[in-house]
Write a protein that binds this DNA or RNA. Structure first.
Length: 280
DNA sequence: AGTCTTGTTCGACT
DNA sequence: CAGTCGAACAAGAC
């Protein structure tokens, strides 16, 4: 499922294929729920004729700034973008934007959870996102301030209104690297642990982007970049989907548990939970 | 054939 | 308000 590194990979690919400056000449919507805002007929009317001015990432959103509106795309679980030369319809294809140079930007989404938002002013939507962990704003003291609450650290890191871009894979990886148990209350972390976590988050995200993200399988519903390539970070995963296998630091068997309804992987030896003192 | 899994958002409950 | 829990979304694996 696309998280920050996968979304950044798609954005980098879109820029590399220079779709900036291209005009949307026609739009076809095959699954109307893929268009979250506005209503489909209004969406089609509004987007046709618009020129793609700039492409960037905001949290897990792909953000296409157009002449008179901004198109936000959230890939959710199985969404993919493909740039093709013709408009014949692929399986699970939900939306296609035909550009003035003949290229077709296709939205493929087996699970149908991905969403397009075409907004005259995206500010309100983007303001709801927390700090981006790859910006200069995300300092150790910034993370320290965000941790001043009782929520479990994993739940906090997954909350997009607190930090935007992390998902299940990279949170498990960062907590393992920082030797922190996912159920630790954020407020109980020492400054040293927060510093380690801050470094772990940045290191892992940068390494994942350098490897074009993580693809958990070769099926089309797994992440692929624009040209269909799989992400190569899977070989670098230390805990995610490694339950039953030895910890790469201490050989203890990695376990999988459920936390906040999410599959959570950890090393029970390296990541020890801290309890409030009153329990003892 | 029903149950579980998967990630995110949102509403409900404590 | 803060935190947790479950539903809903959709399809595939088992």
């Amino acid at each position: 499922m696309p998280e920050l590194p996968e979304v950044q990979t798609v954005v980098n690919d879109l820029i590399r294929h220079s779709i900036e400056g291209k005009k949307v000449v026609k739009t076809v919507v095959f699954w109307s729920k893929s268009i979250a805002e506005p209503f489909v007929d209004e969406f089609i009317k509004m987007i046709e004729g618009q020129i793609i001015k700039r492409i960037e990432r905001r949290g897990k959103y792909i953000c296409l700034k157009m002449s008179e509106a901004t198109l936000l795309i959230h890939l959710r679980m199985s969404g993919r973008l493909i740039l093709a030369n013709e408009s014949s319809v692929l399986s699970h294809e939900r939306v296609q934007l035909i550009l003035d140079d003949g290229q077709v930007l296709k939205f493929i989404d087996q699970r149908k959870f991905g969403r397009f938002y075409l907004l005259r002013d995206p500010t309100a939507k983007l303001e709801r996102l927390g700090v981006d962990p790859l910006t200069a704003e995300f300092t150790v003291s910034c993370l320290d301030k965000l941790c001043k609450r009782k929520k479990k650290i994993k739940t906090l890191l997954l909350d997009q209104s607190v930090i935007s871009g992390l998902g299940n894979i990279y949170v498990d990886e960062a907590l393992w690297l920082a030797h922190i148990h996912p159920e630790t209350s954020a407020a109980l972390l020492t400054f040293q642990e927060i510093d380690a976590l801050h470094q772990a988050i940045q290191k892992i995200l940068q390494a994942a982007i350098a490897n074009q993200g993580t693809s958990l399988g070769e099926h089309t519903s797994n992440f692929h970049s624009l040209n269909g390539e799989s992400g190569k970070y899977i070989s670098r995963l230390n805990v995610y989907k490694r339950q039953g296998m030895p910890c790469l630091r201490c050989k203890t068997v990695i376990v999988k548990m459920t936390l906040g309804g999410r599959g959570t992987h950890l090393c029970p030896q390296c990541q020890v939970e801290k309890y409030p003192q009153h329990i003892f």
